[in-house]
Each structure stands twice: as structure tokens, then as C-alpha cells.
Design a protein around this nucleic acid. Sequence first.
RNA 1: GAUCUCGUAGCUCAGCUGGUUAGAGCAUCUCACUUUUAAUGAGAGGGUCCUGGGUUCGAGUCCCAGCGGGAUCACCA
Length: 569
Amino acid sequence: MHLTEQERIRRSSLQELKRRGIEPYPAAAYPVTHRSRSLADAFEEGVEVSLAGRIMSRRIMGKASFAELQDGEGTFQLYLNRDVLCPDEDKSLYNDVFKKLLDRGDFVGVKGVTFLTQTGEQSIEVRELTVLAKSLKPLPAVKVDEDGKVHDAFTDPELRYRMRYVDLVVNPQVRATFEARSTVIRTIRETFDAKGWLEVDTPVLQAIPGGAAARPFITHHNALDIPLYLRIANELYLKRLIVGGFEGVYEFSRNFRNEGMDRTHNPEFTVMELYVAYKDYLWMMEEMEQLLAKVAHRLHGTHKVTLAGNEIDFTPPFRRVTMRDAILEHTGVDIDGLDEAGLRAACEGLGIETDASMGKGKLVDELFGEKCEHHYIQPTFITDYPVEMSPLTKAHRSKPGYTERFELMINGTEVANAYSELNDPIDQRERFESQLKLAERGDDEAMFIDQDFLRALEYGMPPTSGVGIGIDRLVMMLTNQTSIQEVLLFPQMRPEVFATGPDLGALEAAGVPAEWAPHVAAAGFETVEDLASIKPAGLREKLNGFRKKNKLDLPALSLEDVESWMTNA
RNA sequence: GAUCUCGUAGCUCAGCUGGUUAGAGCAUCUCACUUUUAAUGAGAGGGUCCUGGGUUCGAGUCCCAGCGGGAUCACCA
């Protein structure tokens, strides 16, 4: 294994700690009395404290040193004085262990007494120092100067996402984003629980991927020998629970869609879906206004949030615009009364590409998506979607051809989608059948018919309103992030390829003498496959050349030697 | 999937129209230093210039292919 100089030094420090009888990875719990931020907030001098965390920096000045200890809350300054830490003759804990054998990134526990330095910095004078875990790889050396400017920032997105653990250690704002994410989810959960709604779990593996229009991931169940789909939505299951008599159910659902990835899409993402009986989409709009205002206020202490240079105001009520008016306003096209041909002509007149698989719903969707969506920066409910693009939504109470649906747009992006749920089983069956026709026309995202769901509706579902909130996007909106990868701890990445290194055992098994195997690998033939990729004569020539160049104390190889390995390979 | 763009030390980055032994700051190592805070001062080590081809007397630099990332687009929430 290739180690950098810094890694080799840390490993030798590790061995030296062990040699001195200091366990670098002790098993025992370390008793902690305080943590950094709460200690700073209620600071008093002369208090005995015990903290644990990572050493994030050291400023060594001979017989005294300062260090930054980073724990789960933040950082706190340590002051280590040689003669305080080591009051007896033996000064090795300070001189050797702290100054030489410990590094930035190591976990330690300290016991000591709080005090203020001459410059007024809250500090702990360390009386006891315990090694808790040695770090063998150096952390990126991020520094912040007195103006708050960050130097040598760890910013490479690939490294940050692949090694989120490092990102979290050195970039406090990243930790803050994920704490905010947790606060968003917790606030929603507390709000819903207080209203008596039930948090439920429904299947992730589904035989029919329903509830949304998207391409699913397919897997296979061996015992049943059937294909199963990772859920693209949980909507149909939650509605079954409303049929079953629960009056309010919600689920934070990890959904999976086998589609593109970009700064607003990840193959797996989180939607909070809520269904409440005896309500409609008008009620749901008010409910969402109150919820988002509460979440924003919990995070920021205000309803006004900065996002990508805009101030987003979550103060209720939010603006409401019908889909028809939105399209009329931004394109001059009145979709009311237009048939499929008319819509297609309107799209093409605006430079929107269409194809034969697109029905009325899809065409309206294109008009809105291309020409309107990005205009809605402030929270806005877009309401009353055409029936063709909403197969699970109840027909509008007074506008024929439309449904009782809204989407909440923030910063030009859809954050929530809600309906007065379709509970007429006959209408629902017809909607599914028209989806089937779309599928026959080539729309590979048209919904499957879920016969069991239809049966459930036939038993009767009360009037219900449902909503799905894109949690990842909502967190983006509330934490001023423009990439979904910044709000997912482990965003999807192409799998990393690790250098496997030479397989000496396999080389020897193929007949390569043990004394030759490392040299064969060093010459570039690391695996049996590598051996098989070249003619014996060529291999012999290269290896003997390598032997001569590196003055190996080994007999030259004969063609027979090499041929015998190849036969075994 | 398409287009553009990037890949140089542990980290952040220079490296000109191709030209000696590839540089800087931080980090690391050695020494000094008892209230510092981007600690300081002196010295030292550290490189598969992403990989593989090609052009050339000569490639980190130019060309081709590949791998990986980012951005834009398509699909989508």
C-alpha cells in the first residue's frame, strides 16, 4: 500500500505510542462533563471540566501550547502548560506525546480548569490528557483568519461528496446545513404529531410502482421469482390507509426514480406525504402556509429567508395563481378550450418541441414548465391543473376539465404538490385507462393500473386532501443551497475505483517464484490477467530487462520458466 | 445521453508562444520559544503533473482516446 510521508509519520507515531504503553484506541468510555458551545455560552472561570474531541490545530511555543479541540458542538481552546500537565519529573506526556506523537485530527479527552487568557480567550488549562483515537490521515488544512476569511478551503465537490466525513469535520457550514435539515424534518413531525396524525411506514418494494409518473428502478425477489420496483411514490398506500379509517397519515418517504441527475435531482430523494380525511386542497394550502412559515421561523427566527440573492418571504398567505392564468400571463395563450391540436400549435408557436406521445396534459405541462415556472420566486400556489395531467386528482368542483390540485413553487422550483384526492372509483378507473392509452402512444412514464388500489377505493374513501413536500428541495430553499447534493449527506456518485494493488498470491499460485513475484508486479504485471495479456517471449524480455535495470540479485529467466507460468495462468 | 470545461505536493493554487533539475502558501519533519489564535523565527524533506497513445530534438503545456469531477441541456421532483 502506498503511503504518503505524512501517513508514514503518523503510523510511526502510533507505534511509538504503543511502545510507551499508551493505547491509541482505548476501549473505555471517556467521561465528558461539558461540550464546547454550551461551555462557552455559560462560561465561568475556575470551573473543572472534561471535554473530548479532535485536535484541530496546535500552536506550540516551547513549554506552553494552545490547541483547538473540536467536539460535536464546535471548538474550544485548550492551554497546555508543560509543568501543569506534568507536575512531576517526567515531562514526556507534554514533550513527546502532545508535541510529537499527536497530530491534527487526533481524538483526545482533556480534564482541566477554565480560565481567560490575557487576550480574553475562553480556554481550558489542561491537567490531564488522554489519547482517545489516533488519526492516520491528515485532514485538509482549512484556516480561518481574523476577518473570517477562509484559507485553503476544502471545496472540491468530488472529494467533499465522496468523503463527507472529512467535509463535515473541516467545514462547519456543512454540518450546519445538515442540522438545519434535521430541524426541518423534526418541526414537520412535531407539528403533525400534535395534530394527531399518524406517522406510518409503507412498502419500499412494490409490485406496481404507482402514485407518480416516473421510470422506476427494478429489482427481483428470488423466493417469489417476481420483479419488484423501488417505490417512485407512496401515495397509493397512504390512501389505502385512509380507506382503512385513519383520518390523518403521513410518511417521510425515500423515493427512487431512474432518471437523470443534476443539481435538483438525485436518484433517491425524500418526500413527506400527508393525507387528511374530510379536507380539500383549499384547506391544504392554508395548512402548508402555516407549516412552512413555522419551519422558516424555527430555522431563522424570521419568515424572510435569503436564497440565491433573493429574499424569500414565507409570511402567509402565499400568492395563488391558476395554471390557466399563469400560462396566459407569461405566454398569452389561453389553454381554456384548446384541444390537443390547439395546444400543440401553441407550443410550437413558442418554440417548444413536441412529439406524438404528448397528450393534452403533457403539452400544458410543457407550456408551464418552459415559460412560466421560473418566474415564481416567492412562494406561490399554482392551482387547478388540467385533468389530463393529474390522474389521481378529483375533478374541479366548478371548472370542467380541471382538477383540484396545486403545486407550491419557490424560487422557480416545485416544492410541494397537493390534491383534493380522487375518491370516485369509477372516475379513477377511467383515468388509469387513459394513462394506459398514453403508454400505448409511447409515454414511458404513464401510470400503471393498480387494481388493488381501485378495489380499495370501491370500498369507499372519504373526501381527502393529500400533499407531498420535496424535503430535499425545501431544505435547499431554507438553507440557501442551489444544489441538492449540498443537502444530501451522501449524494449519488459514480462508484469510486480503488487501486487494488498487485495480487502477489495469485501470481505465485500461477507459478511465479516467490522471490520474483514482487518484481513482476513492479514491472507492471500485477495480476494473472496482466500475465496472460502478453506473449511469453515478450514477458521474458521485459522481466529480464527489468532485472538488469534494477540490478536484481536473481537468475535471469528462461523462456521455459515464463511459459510455465502462463500455462498455469 | 449531448456540449463545454477542469484534473499539477496532504490542502488551496501558480506554471507564459512547448525549452535547464516543475514552483508558492499552508500542512509535515528538525531546532528555538511559558498566554497564542491564519502564532512567530531558522532550516529540511515531500511530485505516477489523472491514465494510455501520438506529434516533436524536447510535452505539465499541443493532438487523440479513456477515466473522474463540475457546469449547461435533455428526462424529471
